[in-house]
Amino acid sequence: MSGNGNAAATAEENSPKMRVIRVGTRKSQLARIQTDSVVATLKASYPGLQFEIIAMSTTGDKILDTALSKIGEKSLFTKELEHALEKNEVDLVVHSLKDLPTVLPPGFTIGAICKRENPHDAVVFHPKFVGKTLETLPEKSVVGTSSLRRAAQLQRKFPHLEFRSIRGNLNTRLRKLDEQQEFSAIILATAGLQRMGWHNRVGQILHPEECMYAVGQGALGVEVRAKDQDILDLVGVLHDPETLLRCIAERAFLRHLEGGCSVPVAVHTAMKDGQLYLTGGVWSLDGSDSIQETMQATIHVPAQHEDGPEDDPQLVGITARNIPRGPQLAAQNLGISLANLLLSKGAKNILDVARQLNDAH
Rank of each mutant, 00 (worst) to 15 (best):
V142Q: 06
L154N: 04
G131T: 08
V282Q: 05
I187H: 01
Q34F: 04
S284P: 01
A297I: 01
K79C: 10
D36P: 01
L257R: 15
M271Q: 09
A151Q: 14
D65V: 09
K272L: 08
E306R: 12
H95A: 09
G218K: 01
E209D: 09
S37H: 12
P241D: 07
P159R: 10
G218L: 04
Q275N: 03
T59L: 06
S290R: 07
N358M: 15
V235Y: 04
K27L: 10
G203P: 01
T66Y: 06
L244W: 01
G218R: 01
H268G: 01
S147L: 01
S96G: 10
L232M: 11
G107R: 09
K43A: 09
S37R: 11
A122K: 04
D289F: 14
R26E: 01
H83A: 12
K115I: 08
E135F: 11
A266D: 09
G131S: 11
I291P: 09
Q217L: 01
I187W: 01
L134T: 05
I205Q: 15
C247V: 09
T243H: 11
T279W: 05
A266K: 08
L257M: 12
D178I: 01
Q275D: 03
L357V: 10
T102V: 05
S337N: 15
F129W: 01
D121C: 10
A347F: 03
D359M: 01
V23H: 04
F158V: 05
V202Q: 06
T109G: 01
L342T: 07
K87M: 12
I54L: 10
S75L: 11
I323D: 07
E139R: 08
V124P: 03
Q332T: 13
L161P: 01
L244P: 04
G203R: 04
D286Y: 04
I231S: 10
V222D: 01
H239E: 05
P324C: 04
F77K: 01
V224D: 01
Q29L: 11
E82G: 04
L238A: 01
D228H: 01
A122D: 05
D240Q: 14
R355D: 15
G346C: 15
G326P: 11
V301K: 01
V282L: 06
A44H: 09
M295D: 08
L193Q: 07
V94C: 14
T109N: 06
K227Y: 15
E82Y: 04
L338F: 01
Q229I: 05
Q34Y: 03
C114T: 14
V90W: 04
A189D: 01
V23S: 01
K98S: 01
L85Q: 06
K345E: 01
V267I: 05
P127C: 03
K62R: 08
P106E: 14
A67T: 14
W283T: 05
T145M: 07
P324V: 09
P264A: 04
V282H: 05
H268P: 04
A84F: 11
K132W: 12
A320K: 05
G48F: 07
M212E: 05
D99R: 01
Q292F: 09
A84I: 05
N118M: 11
Y46H: 13
V316Q: 01
R255W: 12
Y277H: 15
T172R: 10
N200H: 14
G280R: 03
D230F: 01
K157H: 13
L343W: 15
L104T: 06
I33T: 12
K74T: 07
V90P: 01
N200R: 04
I186G: 05
L238S: 04
P309G: 15
V202H: 01
Q180M: 10
I166L: 11
E162I: 12
I113C: 11
S165R: 09
V20R: 12
Q229E: 13
V316I: 10
L232G: 13
Q155S: 13
H268N: 15
K43C: 08
S284L: 01
A67V: 11
Q332H: 15
A270S: 07
H160L: 10
S57A: 06
C247I: 01
V282D: 04
D99F: 01
E52A: 14
P241C: 14
K227P: 01
L174R: 08
A330H: 03
K132R: 11
A249Q: 01
A331T: 08
D240T: 06
V90H: 06
I33W: 12
A297G: 10
S165D: 01
T41Q: 07
A226G: 11
K115T: 12
V142A: 12
I71R: 05
A339V: 10
L85V: 10
T319F: 11
I318T: 07
N200C: 12
G192V: 07
P208G: 13
K132C: 11
P127I: 13
A303Q: 01
L254V: 11
L30T: 01
G221Y: 05
H199Y: 14
L315P: 09
L161S: 06
L76R: 11
N358S: 15
A152Q: 04
A266P: 01
V142E: 11
L30S: 01
E82W: 06
L64R: 09
V263M: 06
K140D: 13
F129V: 09
V90G: 03
H160S: 10
G192T: 04
E162P: 01
R167H: 07
D61S: 01
H83S: 12
T109W: 06
A44C: 05
S262I: 12
Q180S: 11
L329M: 15
G203C: 13
R149D: 04
G192C: 11
E89Y: 13
N169Y: 09
R149A: 01
V20M: 11
I21E: 01
R251G: 01
H95F: 12
V39H: 06
K157L: 12
V130T: 09
S75R: 12
Q292E: 15
I248S: 08
T319A: 08
E293L: 06
E139F: 14
L154W: 07
A44F: 12
L220M: 13
S262W: 01
G218A: 05
T319Y: 14
Q155T: 11
R201I: 15
G287W: 01
T35R: 01
V143C: 14
G216R: 01
S146I: 08
E306G: 07
V263G: 01
P105R: 10
G203W: 14
K79G: 12
R173P: 01
V301D: 12
T145D: 01
E117V: 14
A67S: 01
M271T: 06
D36I: 07
I231G: 06
E306W: 11
D359K: 04
Q292A: 08
I205C: 13
L148Q: 11
L334S: 07
E73W: 04
S96R: 03
N340H: 01
N322W: 14
Q204K: 07
A40H: 08
I53Y: 13
A191Y: 04
H199G: 09
V90L: 12
L97S: 05
Q50V: 01
F51G: 08
L341F: 07
K79N: 13
G317C: 14
N169E: 06
F125G: 01
I63A: 13
I166W: 12
F253S: 01
I21N: 03
E162K: 14
L92E: 01
I186P: 01
I21R: 06
T298G: 03
A55W: 08
R32K: 08
L92Y: 01
F51L: 11
L81Y: 04
D312F: 05
V235S: 01
A67W: 01
G144M: 12
T298K: 09
H83N: 13
E86S: 11
V222C: 10
D359F: 07
G280P: 01
D65G: 09
Q181D: 08
I318A: 01
T279M: 05
S288C: 11
V130M: 09
A266Q: 01
K128I: 12
A44L: 10
P47K: 15
G280A: 14
G24C: 09
K272E: 08
R225V: 07
F163S: 08
H239R: 01
W198E: 12
H83Y: 14
K128F: 07
E52R: 12
S45P: 09
I33F: 06
E135N: 08
G308K: 01
P302N: 01
V353T: 15
D307S: 08
V142T: 10
E182G: 15
I231P: 01
I205Y: 15
V301R: 09
T294F: 09
V224A: 07
S290W: 15
N349W: 15
R195V: 04
V123C: 07
D228K: 03
G287P: 01
G60W: 07
L97A: 10
V103P: 11
I21D: 01
T102G: 09
